[in-house]
């Protein structure tokens, strides 16, 4: 299963302050660790929202509204993401916990979100039921 580790924006990242060399080094080591464990799929850092564009649909069926950045609510924006492929939710959490504090002054926040994959999107109830039954069986065997 795939997870996206989303690093939230902070006042610093929004101000375009670059991370300290120490943090950059720690991040680099962390990414290397992910790669060496074979779980890293990809990741990117984003420019501050000052260069962003927001398109919204304030009215149902209406025309889109285009607003240029910057936007104010830093904590609701993202500064970057890392995509990983793991075997379980717990493994994803474990990796997320090992990520260096992305900002280091109390605003650091990482959000972990599971990524939809094709089979999640197929609405074949039979296949889904079969899969669930199997997972349950596996879970029970593990407990036994």
């Amino acid at each position: 299963m795939r997870f996206m580790m989303i690093v939230k924006a902070t006042t610093d990242s929004e101000a375009g302050v670059l991370p300290s060399p120490e943090l950059l080094e720690a991040m680099h080591r962390y990414n290397e660790e992910l790669a060496r464990a074979g779980v890293l799929l990809g990741g990117d850092g984003l420019h501050p929202s000052s260069s962003a564009i927001r398109i919204s649909y304030p009215e149902p069926g209406g025309k889109p509204k285009v607003v240029d950045g910057p936007f104010t609510e830093a904590k609701e924006m993202i500064a970057g993401y890392t995509l990983i492929e793991v075997k379980s939710r717990e493994e994803a959490i474990e990796w997320a916990l090992r990520m260096p504090d992305p900002h280091g002054f109390g605003q650091g926040q990482i959000e972990l979100r599971q990524v939809f994959e094709v089979e999640d999107l197929t609405d074949n109830p039979e296949a889904i039921a079969k899969e669930n039954a199997l997972r349950q069986q596996l879970e029970e065997q593990r407990k036994a």
Partner: peptide, 23 residues
């Protein structure tokens, strides 16, 4: 076969390959 465990083999092989590419 087990349609949950078969993809697991692919994923594990791919993961191991990615590890090998790093080391």
């Amino acid at each position: 076969g087990d349609h949950w465990l078969r993809p697991l083999l692919c994923q594990e092989a791919l993961r191991l390959g990615r590890v090998l590419a790093e080391i």
